[in-house]
């Protein structure tokens, strides 16, 4: 699977990795629509189902205690847990400073029963990727959710509005710089 991608799209791939049967490809955002279209329509791939579409904010990745996978756990692990090996830490192909977000796509082939995950790094200054609603109608709500919670825009989306929060909400609450205790109620006190 990954070998096919490496042969066909060397110009778009930043990194590929396979871990415990999970194939992951980090790609440039210019190639997203073309790669996704080929993954869906190619007879040898036929990834016809968009299982998930989400985003990751790497603003504080590895810097705070809560998101630092390299540090040892503050409390001793219970007897049934093993310490996390360092190979499980996700190393990005790009720097977290430049590319703050990853848009993550999970594709599944109902014909071949294989899966692939696509990471698309985007910058904080220009958080825009192409919309996949032309390929999968189900991407509509996923992309609205990502826009609502992360503030990543999708060009070509027919109706890019908030889906979970209300229209009057300011900001994007799943960004790591959104204050945890900030309240924006429609009615009632603000604290």
């Amino acid at each position: 699977m990954l070998q096919t991608l490496v042969e066909r799209f060397p110009q778009f791939l930043l990194k590929t990795s396979a871990y415990r049967g999970q194939d992951t490809a980090v790609i440039k955002r210019e190639g997203l629509l073309e790669m996704a279209g080929r993954l869906r329509d190619d007879p040898g791939l036929q990834c016809d189902l968009l299982m998930d579409l989400t985003a990751v904010d790497y603003l504080k990745y590895g810097r705070s205690l809560g998101s630092a996978p390299t540090r040892s756990t503050p409390s001793p692990l219970p007897y049934y847990m093993k310490p996390k090996p360092t190979t499980e830490i996700w190393e990005r192909a790009v720097s977290n400073e430049t590319y703050r977000f990853d848009v993550v796509y999970h594709l599944f082939s109902s014909v071949y029963h294989h899966r692939i995950r696509l990471h698309v790094p985007v910058t904080a200054a220009d958080p825009v990727v192409d919309s996949l609603t032309s390929l999968w109608a189900g991407a509509n709500w996923f992309e609205r959710e990502v826009w609502d919670l992360f503030g990543i825009r999708f060009t070509g989306h027919p109706n890019l509005r908030r889906i979970l929060m209300y229209d009057e909400f300011q900001g994007h609450p799943l960004r790591k710089d959104y204050p945890v205790n900030k309240r924006q109620p429609l009615i009632g006190p603000t604290t």
């Binding site: 945890v180 205790n181 309240r183 109620p185």
Partner: peptide
């Protein structure tokens, strides 16, 4: 719940 989404007790409204 102590987050952006939840009303902290309905006696606030």
């Amino acid at each position: 719940y102590d987050n952006y989404a939840t009303v902290m007790g309905i006696d606030t409204i």
